[in-house]
Design a protein around this nucleic acid. Structure first.
Lengths: 123, 123
DNA sequence: TTGACATATTCCCATATGGGCATATAGTTG
DNA sequence: CAACTATATGCCCATATGGGAATATGTCAA
């Protein structure tokens, strides 16, 4: 079935670096498409397409005035992502604690070796 | 150039619903691959592939013991995503305020019509 | 060594982009 | 109406998946 459509949810829409840039740019105040093009140095069609995706998932809103289209970030649509990541807050806090304890322990006991090892890619 | 590789960053890795499920499942404690397969009802090869992606971006860690591989969520790798979304917190708070004010105003003044309209897709 | 068990890889395929470029749509102005 | 401006779409193409099935790799037990 291939990949899920970016059009379906905020998580996918936000996975695109350029779209994140656009969202940041449009968060303080609404801007016409041309301003985004100038500010981010992207091609106009490209910006329109990204805006289309963002609009489809509700991450931005538009206000048309004459031949211009003023877009603006709809911050509320980012909340779901924020909330999802928040569920892990307790865990990374806990991990930090563990790391600290481990460091202090290592400082006390000079040396030792574990039977099992924990790997992490791309160190 | 096509789409950015999911392998490159947490944002893309987390865009996959199944991978989010896996991360949640592995957050409380490490689990062997088989446990994930059973718990989420996914095919074993599929799980291995998702774990591979998560491992590449550092979202999980492995501890090998015999023929089993115990995976565990590395919550800290989710922080960047959390922090990025946090930058919009002030905006959605502000928006909520605006919405509330608008509602109260509407309650007072019976009717009125705006010159410009704000659209949102897929209402 | 052989066979069972736990994971990881590889192949193949259908689908979804994202970028570049050209063109279609409006809305504006002379 | 014609020329111009601001955006939106359509096309084509290279690339990255994700799932399913089959197979490879590694480990343990008899």
């Amino acid at each position: 079935m291939s990949r899920a459509a970016t059009t379906s949810d905020s998580f996918n829409a936000v996975a695109e670096p350029r779209r994140r840039d656009i969202l940041e740019f449009l968060a303080p105040a609404e801007r016409p498409v041309g301003a985004i093009v100038d500010a981010l140095g992207l091609a106009q069609p490209s910006v329109s397409k990204h805006l289309r995706v963002l609009l489809d998932v509700g991450l931005v809103e538009v206000r048309r005035d004459g031949r211009q289209a003023f877009y603006r970030t709809n911050a509320e649509a980012i909340k779901p992502v924020h909330e999802w990541t928040s569920r892990f807050e307790r865990y990374w806090r806990r991990q930090l604690t563990r790391v600290k304890e481990r460091a202090e322990r290592a400082e006390r006991e000079s040396e030792r070796s574990d039977k099992t090892t924990t790997y992490r890619r791309k160190p």
